[in-house]
Design a protein around this nucleic acid. Structure first.
Lengths: 145, 145
DNA sequence: TATTGTTATACTCTATAACTATA
DNA sequence: TATAGTTATAGAGTATAACAATA
């Protein structure tokens, strides 16, 4: 594959900006709130589709063990529940509880709210549209890596 | 795509896509390569401007102690060097070594190269341009948080 | 007193390896 | 044998607290 100077420039810019953003988001998380992977899982469960730890791990591109740890934390706080799969005794069917969905949508979730606030107040409508498109592109990029 | 994406929708989409991308980038890192924060620091030093741990920490939005740990790792491998500041005995002036700059630019750095490859092969020119614009917006977003 | 940096400690998120239970 | 999940352990990348040296 020939070097594409454009691609290198974009790669560098994305690495820098994404690194900064992730760190800020982590810092904004307050006591008792959902972490990034936790809200990602709840959002997946809300959308439906995946219902086992392994399936969720594949979607989030992490190991099943890591997903297990995340799910265990959510279960302890009553935000998801796990039950047996009648068809396959090895599987545990994961679902979001009402409390979990409430937590996910709760606008008091500081980091999500802060992010939304910053987007609403510091960016124009067309910039928000650009960012929404970019999010789609970034997701595709992650999958193509 | 809607005309007026509300801030909450954009916030959610960005959180999901950015989380995925960061995880993939970390997974791609091979033995002995630069980590994300390490290449960020070297890139800052290359661009010039900041030369102390505290200044770099502010730019990267992490604590001075965390930056100290990153710099110590880089120094051990000879990629940066720290010397005394003649004007202020408390400060240590940090600079990238030739080996550090070489490492930064080295196309064999697997994760950076993979990212560039994926961008070059899976995205159109105009999509790459969109992503470059988005990177600027994301950096602004991180600073406004 | 305030600032720069270091050391010590701990948390989150992730990984791999070894194991059990089920298919 | 292969798959779903658990437990144990480790590493990266952060954080805060307590400290020393210098301004």
């Amino acid at each position: 594959m020939r070097d594409d100077p454009d691609a290198g420039e974009v790669a560098g810019a994305l690495r820098t900006s994404i690194g900064l953003l992730v760190r800020r988001l982590r810092q904004l998380k307050a006591e008792g709130e959902l972490t990034l992977p936790e809200s990602a899982v709840l959002a997946r469960l809300d959308r439906g589709g995946a219902t086992t730890a392994t399936a969720l791990a594949k979607l989030e591109q992490i190991s099943p063990q890591s997903m297990g740890a995340t799910l265990a934390g959510l279960e302890t706080r009553g935000l998801v529940k796990r039950g047996p799969d009648p068809q396959d005794g090895r599987r545990a069917v994961v679902s979001a509880t009402k409390a979990g969905l409430r937590e996910l949508r709760d606008r008091r979730n500081a980091s999500a709210a802060e992010l939304a606030r910053a987007l609403a107040s510091g960016f124009s409508r067309s910039e928000r549209k650009q960012l929404l498109v970019a999010a789609t592109l970034l997701e595709r990029l992650a999958q193509n890596l």
